[in-house]
Design a protein around this nucleic acid. Sequence first.
DNA 1: TAGGTGATGGAATACGTTTTCCGAGATTAT
DNA 2: ATAATCTCGGAAAACGTATTCCATCACCTA
Lengths: 347, 347
Amino acid sequence: MPHPARDTVTLHDVAAAAGVSLATASRVLGASSRTVAPEFRERVLAAAERLRYTADASARAMRRVSDSLALVADDVTTPSMAIVVSAMERAASTTGAFVTVSATHGDPGRQLETIRRVRALRPRALVLTSGRVEAGALSGRLLAELRAYEHDGGRVVIVGDTDLPFHSVGFDNHGAASRLGRYVAESGHRRVVIVAGARGQAAAAARTAGFVEGLRAGGVAEPAVRIVHCPVSREGGYEVAHRLAAEGLRGTDAVLAVNDLLAVGALRAFREAGVAVPDGVSLTGFDDVGLAVNVTPRLTTVALPLAYAGAEAIRLALGEPGAVTHVTVEGRLVVRDSTRERVAAAG
Amino acid sequence: MPHPARDTVTLHDVAAAAGVSLATASRVLGASSRTVAPEFRERVLAAAERLRYTADASARAMRRVSDSLALVADDVTTPSMAIVVSAMERAASTTGAFVTVSATHGDPGRQLETIRRVRALRPRALVLTSGRVEAGALSGRLLAELRAYEHDGGRVVIVGDTDLPFHSVGFDNHGAASRLGRYVAESGHRRVVIVAGARGQAAAAARTAGFVEGLRAGGVAEPAVRIVHCPVSREGGYEVAHRLAAEGLRGTDAVLAVNDLLAVGALRAFREAGVAVPDGVSLTGFDDVGLAVNVTPRLTTVALPLAYAGAEAIRLALGEPGAVTHVTVEGRLVVRDSTRERVAAAG
DNA sequence: TAGGTGATGGAATACGTTTTCCGAGATTAT
DNA sequence: ATAATCTCGGAAAACGTATTCCATCACCTA
C-alpha cells in the first residue's frame, strides 16, 4: 500500500467526477480569487458534496499558510487553562483553524522538547502559558528555539507576565495582589501567612511580592508576615494550613493564598482542625475560578478576566504583523465571605 | 512570495549541509528501517542540530500516517474533559503525536460541521465525547460522516455510552446510579427529587433511570420521586434547589443530582435558603470531580475513573486494528458527608 | 473588420517529505 | 577466482493541493 490513508477521495476525484480540470476544482473548493463559470462551479460543488470530499489539511498547508494554532501549557487540567483553551478554540473555529494542545508538566526540559515538537506543525501561532519558568531560565535554548520558530514566520504569544521580546498578555499580578494585601491590612489584620506556592514560579512570585507590598502599605510590617512555599495544588494548601493549625495559629489572623486552589485546600484543613473561617482566621484566594463561589464560606479573591485574556491572546496571534505588544489586564478585588473586619487588637 | 512559510530550513538544506543526498538525510532523520553508515549518520545529525531542523509535519503526513489525534467534545472547559484531554496529550506525546481539540457546544449542527472540519486533518483517531446527542439523532448524517472518516482509514472512539458500531469506552451510568439510588432508599429516605439535567442527554438519562430503578429496589415507589430537568450547570442546580426550598420542600428528604456541578449549585441554594445539608435534606452528586471533596459538606457521589477512561480511549485509538470493542468502566459509590441515615418516619 | 482586452479553463509545477528502484561496491560461497 | 548475495547511497517518483503560466474565446473599440 503506497499510502497509509489510501482511497481517500481527493480533489482529483472530484475534478474527474465533475468533468473539469484539477485547477478548476481547486479554485471552486479552495478560497481562490479566480472566478469560475457558474455552470462549472455548480458541477464541482455537487460532485464534492456527493463524494463527501474534504480537502486534506496537510496538503493544503504545504501551499498556503498553516491552519493550526498551538497551545503549550504546563498543565492543561487547570481551570484557567480550560478557559484559555476554550477561548482559543472558539476563535480558531471561526477562522477555520485548529487548536493543538501540549503539556509540559512544568519541566523546563520537556518544555524545550515540546516546543521543538510543536514547531513541526508550523502553526500560525504558538501560545505559551507557563508560570513555572522564570524569564531567566527561558533565555537560553528555549529562547533560541522560539526565535527560530518566529524566523520561520510563526508568531509567539506568551500568556503571563514576561519581559521577553514576544507578544504577551499579562496579568497585573503585582498590582492586584497589592490591592488585596492592602485591603487585608486595612481591615484590621495584623499577622498574616502567605501561602506562596512553588518557588521560581513567576506569577506566584509576583503575587507574593504584591501581597507583601500591599500589607506594608497598610501598616503590617515584615516580621508579622510569614511566607510559606508548597506545591501548587489543593493538597499543598491543605498541608500548609494543617501545619499552621497544628501549631495553634500563633496569632495569625489572615492567610493569603497565591491562588484559589491553594485557598480551597487550606479551607478544608481549617475546617477539619476546627478553625472557623473567617471568624478564627481570614482566608483569601486568587483567580476567582468558578469554585471560589461554591465553597463555604465563599472566597474573597481576585478575579482575573481569563476569557478576555485568552481572546486577547488570539487577537495578537492572528492579528496583522506589527510591533511586539505587551497587553496587561487588570485583576479585580472581589470581597466575599472568607474575610471580615477585625477590631485592631494592639499587638 | 511563492510560499508563506518561506526560508524555513528544509531537509534539502540539511542534506546539502551534510554533503549527502536527500534520501540519506531522510533515512537518518525519519525513523527509517534502512541502515546508514555511521559516518554519514553523524554528519546528518550534526547538520540538523546546527540548522535547528524540524521536519515539517504536514509534508510528512503526506507520505506516512498522520500524527494527529482529534478530540471533539461538547465543552472543553468541564473538569472531566480536562482530564481526558490531559490523558490523551500524555499518550500522544510519548508517541510523537499531536492532540487537537474542538468544541461543538452541544449543538448537533455544529457537531456535524466540526467533524467534517476535523476530518481534514486526517487524524489517526477521532475521539468523540458527547453527552448531548442521543444515539438516534446521531444515526443520520453524523453517522455517515463518521463512516466516511473511518473509510479513510481513521479510527473512531466514543467516550460515553453508545450503541453505535464504533469503539467506545462507556461508563456504567445506569449501574452506578442504581447503586446510589438503592443506598439512598435503604438509608431511610422516602421522598426524593432527581435533578436530571437537560433532556435528551444520554448519560444524564441513564443516570436518572438508574436512580429510579435503585430507589424502587430500595422500596421508594414512583409517586414519591420527582424528576426535574434543568440546564447542566451550577446555575441549573441552583435554580432547582432554590425553587424547591421556596416551595418548602414538601417532605423531600433527598436530592439526587445527575452530576457534581448541579449538586454544588443546589448546595449553595440550600445554604442560602437555610436548609441544612444533610440534616434537612440529603444531597448527592455524580462524577466525583475534585471539587466534590472541597465543598461543605463533602459530597456523597459516584467516582468515575476518568483518567483511566481517557487512557483506555487512547489505547483503543492507537491500538492494533481489530473488532469493535465496547469497554465499560464501573463507577464507585463514595459516601461522604452530604447524606445521612434517616429513621423511617412512616409516611 | 482588425486588433486589443479581459475572462476563464487546463497543463504543469512547486511545496517538503518518504519510499521505491537502481546501481555500485563489498562480502561471502563454491 | 568467479558468481551470487548483501549493503547502502543517490536519483526520481509520489503524496494532494494551490498557483503560475499559457491558450482560447468572447467581447469591445476604432
